[in-house]
């Protein structure tokens, strides 16, 4: 395990990495036991890179995002690891320092815009408040900035005078993105930003995220939709049961999946343009309080060997790919 982590570090050393996550674990402490939602995860993100984190519900992808933002609430806790953002370890920052990072350096878009927006306050006032919390500018200037922000996400500037309920789901999600980029962060994390939206609206939101990337930001898109991530991101990270099981270039990963889980997922997703039967993946996602021994995927894996039941597989580098599987040792 340690070898593999050193290996990633070596591969990416000297690169213009915005974000380096090393050996990060976030656990939830419940009455039944300890749930390892994120289990010793390491990954990097380059400047102006669009990374898609793909996984099923409960795989730890949202917990990973909330950990980067340090928004984990009890009974959850980040128990080990480093999150280096532009060289500084976010986990070592004081709460007040972290508050300055949130919004100003890392922006986040959440799944449900209705619960993230204040229903009793006009859109404009909410953006102005965010700007004024971090920047010392007057109300009028901030309001002008808010209107420009709304225009940058494809909404008319006069929507500053609207309340959240007067907007559609897609428009609200645009407001959320405007809020997330209000302070011009270099990294934007979008956690299932289009799950509640229709495909046509989804496409428009994705266009905005891609524009954000063109403007120089790094993007993390968290989604359960494999084809969406494959289509939009430069690199894909596949998570299963708290582990990163595979990561690599999007188009190559889709063409030649290496991890049996990635392969199974690809075969089980219907695609609009590809002629194929879908294959059923056996079994169920594991209970993370009592995960299977060895490789957590082994009970569902068609290639499982003896070693898979006994020992955790290392994260192995094959060409430009990283894969956590004994098949490649």
């Amino acid at each position: 395990m340690m070898v593999a982590i050193a290996e990633i570090a070596e591969r990416t050393e000297g690169n213009d990495n915005v974000l380096k996550i090393r050996n990060l674990s976030t656990h939830y402490f419940s009455r039944r036991g300890v749930l390892k939602a994120v289990d010793r995860v390491s990954m990097d993100l380059k400047k102006q890179e669009f990374v898609g984190i793909v996984g099923e519900s409960g795989c730890g992808k949202s917990t990973l995002a909330f950990s980067i933002m340090r928004l984990i609430q009890p009974p959850g806790k980040i128990v080990e690891g480093e999150i280096l953002f532009n060289g500084k370890d976010l986990l070592k920052l004081k709460d007040e320092e972290m508050r300055k990072v949130r919004g100003k350096e890392i922006g986040m878009v959440f799944q449900d815009p209705m619960t993230s927006l204040d229903p009793l306050e006009k859109i404009g006032d909410q953006i102005v408040e965010t700007i004024q919390m971090h920047e010392d500018i007057g109300k009028n200037e901030a309001l002008e900035k808010a209107m420009k922000l709304l225009e940058s996400v494809g909404l008319p500037g006069d929507r500053v005078n609207y309340y959240p309920h007067q907007l559609s789901g897609g428009q609200r999600q645009r407001v959320m993105i405007a809020l997330a980029i209000a302070l011009n962060p270099t990294l934007l994390i979008a956690d299932e930003p289009t799950t509640a939206l229709d495909v046509i609206v989804q496409e428009k939101i994705m266009e905005i995220l891609q524009n954000m990337k063109e403007e120089g930001r790094s993007i993390i898109l968290i989604t359960h939709d494999f084809s969406l991530a494959a289509e939009k991101s430069d690199r894909i990270v596949i998570m299963y049961a708290g582990w990163i099981v595979e990561m690599g270039d999007s188009s190559k990963l889709v063409k030649e999946p290496m991890h049996p889980y990635t392969e199974g997922l690809l075969e089980s997703v219907p695609d609009i343009w590809l002629q194929k039967k879908i294959k059923t993946m056996p079994g169920f996602p594991p209970d993370l309080i009592n995960p299977p021994s060895g490789c957590k995927f082994h009970p569902r894996c068609p290639h499982a060997m003896e070693v898979c039941k006994r020992e955790e597989p290392p994260l192995i580098g094959v060409n430009e790919r990283l894969v956590k599987c004994w098949l490649y040792k």
Binding site: S168, Q171, V199, S227, D271
Partner: peptide, 23 residues
């Protein structure tokens, strides 16, 4: 056609059919 052009796919087709505004 607009719906088809917006469906995510592993091999996206470029239909170039636009759709304006909201429902």
């Amino acid at each position: 056609a607009a719906l088809l052009s917006a469906v995510p796919s592993f091999e996206k087709r470029d239909l170039r059919i636009d759709i304006k505004g909201d429902v």
